[in-house]
Amino acid sequence: MHSVTPVRTYVLIWVVLTIMTFVTYGVAQIDLGPFNIVIALAIAAFKMTLVIWFFMHVRTDSPLTKLFVFAGFFWMAILFVFTLGDYVSRAWMPGGKFW
């Protein structure tokens, strides 16, 4: 049967998630130019990974489930790359520079 994760681990993940929320808020108050959005999304992706890996137990799930979780985000990456590859390369669209 599936192993039981200790309460310590869950609480630790929660502490990290909460700290990262404060960090996101704090970093947004500093002007870093285009890096504001980069850092904000990197922190969000990190938080998401923690939630998926520990809270959603993908850590202990079957390899098939792991593959599907990865495939889901890979598919979304295709959505973004193809869509933005089109819009960003159209010189006549407003907002030519990418953030």
Partner: peptide, 21 residues
């Protein structure tokens, strides 16, 4: 947890766009 993850992305994208500008 999935609904939580959606909010984790909505928060920086909708609330923290232009505080420094």
């Amino acid at each position: 947890h999935f609904v939580d993850i959606v909010w984790i992305f909505l928060f920086p994208l909708l609330y923290l766009i232009g505080h420094t500008r």
